[in-house]
């Protein structure tokens, strides 16, 4: 009855629509349903399992050997996108299990493709500390070598100082303890006028000072084999995963007079010259900003661009920005517009 009501063209339309509906939705996936699951949350460094179960949409039977691709959505160094984590095949129960190591703190967004519409999983990772530890700076017994060297050198110098003391004894002409006959003779010698401040004492004193300096050097020396975290360094910051840092200004060394002159200096100390060239002429890394308008320079500098860091009001104030622009204007004139 329905068919006669539709007529020839109606049936054709329905058939075409039917084929279109069948043909859409992917090569093999039009008749699959995919259920994905992941733990509620995870700890950093843990390897969790993402499971995906594939059933045939029509029959409800599990599908074996279906290939699913897993992606993770990340951002790094101003580049955002998906990392392909890997693939998993479903087993005879239609279950695909993918082992995923949690290396990122925050919300993980996993996209699973291959089952028609991509499925998206999202779960937070909040617990965890440093995972990768560099082997640099690790020693067996921290500082032991230094103490051994100190002891050996110290022992040698102590013996030399003892020798020095013997020589002082020579100069004072004092007899060894307990020898009566000698003591009498040397008493006579001693009254002939000996002074404390003679060569031998001074030389021994010098030796003590040198030995002290050497011991001080050894004790102050940093203890790690690879000079990790060396004493006396002022590093502006260590790069932390969670941190957000400004590009540091290393400061102008001289006082330049004219605005453009200052701008030329700031162009170097803020790192602009690194990518754009000392004369703002452009380099392999970045184009010349000399022909840009004030508004464009201001906008790109304040907001950043892929490959270019941003400089906020606190990091690079408006006065400095104007000075840099004055330098760019001068360069533009030199370059001929």
């Amino acid at each position: 009855m329905t068919w006669r009501r539709l007529g020839r063209w109606g049936t054709l339309a329905i058939l075409v629509l039917g084929f279109l509906l069948l043909g859409s939705g992917g090569a093999f996936a039009d008749h699959w349903t995919v259920e994905v699951s992941a733990p509620e949350e995870g700890a950093l460094g843990e390897t969790i399992q993402l499971t995906a179960t594939v059933h045939d949409a029509a029959t409800g039977e599990p599908v074996e050997g279906a290939e699913l691709v897993f992606f993770s959505s990340v951002t790094f160094a101003g580049v955002g996108g998906d990392i392909e984590l890997g693939e998993a095949l479903t087993n005879d129960l239609g279950v695909a299990v993918f082992d995923y190591e949690l290396r990122k703190l925050g919300t993980h967004t996993i996209t699973i493709e291959g089952g028609g519409e991509p499925n998206i999983l999202s779960f937070p990772v909040t617990i965890g500390g440093q995972l990768y530890r560099s082997p640099a700076g690790i020693s067996l017994i921290p500082g032991a070598g230094g103490w051994v060297v100190t002891l050996v050198i110290g022992a040698i110098w102590v013996i030399m100082i003892i020798v020095g003391v013997s020589v002082v004894r020579v100069s004072r002409g004092s007899p060894p303890a307990g020898n009566e006959a000698e003591a009498e003779e040397d008493e006579r010698e001693r009254s002939a006028g000996t002074k404390w401040l003679n060569t031998a004492t001074m030389v021994t004193a010098v030796m003590v000072v040198v030995a002290g300096g050497i011991v001080a050097l050894l004790i102050r020396s940093p203890n790690t084999h690879h000079n990790r975290d060396p004493v006396g360094y002022d590093r502006s910051a260590v790069a932390f995963v969670e941190g957000a840092y400004a590009y540091p200004d290393f400061g102008l060394a001289d006082d330049a007079a004219a605005e453009a002159e200052i701008g030329r200096g700031l162009f170097v100390t803020f790192g602009c010259a690194g990518c754009h060239g000392v004369d703002a002429e452009g380099t392999t890394t970045a184009k010349s900003p000399a022909s840009a308008s004030y508004d464009w320079v201001r906008q790109v500098t304040r907001n950043g661009q892929p490959g270019m860091p941003s400089y906020s009001e606190q990091e690079l104030n408006d006065t400095q920005l104007n000075e840099i622009f004055a330098f760019l204007a001068e360069t533009r004139g030199e370059l001929g517009g």
Partner: peptide, 19 residues
């Protein structure tokens, strides 16, 4: 340094040289 050749001095010097 006030060397007079006494036996005491010789002993000290000799020991120092030996060390």
């Amino acid at each position: 340094i006030n060397w007079r050749g006494t036996s005491g001095q010789k002993r000290h010097l000799g020991r120092a040289i030996s060390i």
